[in-house]
């Protein structure tokens, strides 16, 4: 199984430099479809699905390897090695922002710049740190995934059958959005929401841009500031966009901010 097939790696665009887009929990590479094409004229764009998401090889899922974010970071490094990436730009949404930071520590030459969209080094509150969630919140989330998966499987099937309003998205998107193995989704949720990578932040040496939304219930502005304060030389840009997915809700603002940075 090649890394390229395992992670459903899709390379497009023209350019000396590569830019890698990495999706977060609950999504797949389609999250970047309003953003990544904007970089194709200047960059080689690289999109991929984490193992367990989208069109990745579900058979490659190993609960032990993916038991923390390092397993995902190793995959990212392997993708970079397979494509021969050097001094590339990494753009990671949500939990992938931390996966990219870990990968940059494992392979320092691979990424010269990191763009973190809605990052959080730790979701659960701690002494002197406000992650935004109590341990009970996260336990409820994990416990309710079974319910939600049932809601998902029953509720989503009809919704994704017909894309009458936006036919250009087509069946391809619908297909991959269905492809969330519930057991893997639950494990990924646990890994994501119980992660604590605060100690890794000061070690990051890549140029770092943090894109922070207003009104993001998953990663608040205070967390964006925390990340900025702990990654040496990093820059925080607060977008006008609200919610946790500016790459979908405000793609132009995200594109502009990234272009400005790279």
């Amino acid at each position: 199984m090649s890394v390229i097939r395992r992670n459903n790696v899709v390379v497009s665009g023209h350019g000396e430099k590569a830019i890698v887009f990495s999706h977060g929990f609950g999504c797949d590479q389609n999250m970047w479809r309003f953003v990544a094409p904007e970089f194709e004229t200047r960059f080689q764009t690289v999109l991929f699905d984490h193992v367990g998401a989208g069109k990745s090889d579900l058979g490659a899922y190993d609960p032990e390897k993916y038991g923390d974010l390092h397993g995902y970071a190793e995959d990212l490094v392997e993708i970079g090695e397979a494509l021969g990436l050097k001094q590339a730009v990494f753009v990671g949404h949500s939990v992938s922002a931390m996966i990219g930071a870990l990968a940059s520590l494992k392979a320092p030459d691979m990424f010269e710049a990191l763009v973190m969209v809605g990052p959080s080094p730790r979701y659960i509150d701690d002494i002197g740190y406000k992650g935004g969630f109590s341990p009970a919140d996260i336990e409820e989330l994990l416990a309710s995934l079974a319910d939600n998966h049932m809601g998902w499987s029953i509720a989503m099937a009809p919704a994704i059958m017909g894309n009458s309003d936006r036919p250009e998205l087509g069946q391809e998107l619908a297909d991959s959005f269905c492809r969330t193995d519930p057991a893997i989704a639950k494990a990924f949720a646990r890994v994501t929401f119980t992660s604590d990578n605060r100690a890794d932040l000061p070690r990051v040496t890549a140029r770092t841009l943090i894109l922070q939304c207003k009104d993001d219930i998953i990663a608040s502005e205070a967390i964006g500031e925390y990340v900025r304060d702990h990654i040496p030389g990093s820059r925080l840009v607060v977008l006008d966009a609200t919610g946790h997915c500016p790459n979908l809700s405000a793609p132009r603002e995200v594109v502009a901010a990234i272009q400005d940075f790279v």
Partner: peptide
């Protein structure tokens, strides 16, 4: 936020 909001934004609707 992680599932339905992206879906709504991408296809313009969701059902059920």
């Amino acid at each position: 936020e992680t599932h339905f909001a992206p879906l709504l934004r991408m296809q313009g609707f969701f059902h059920e």
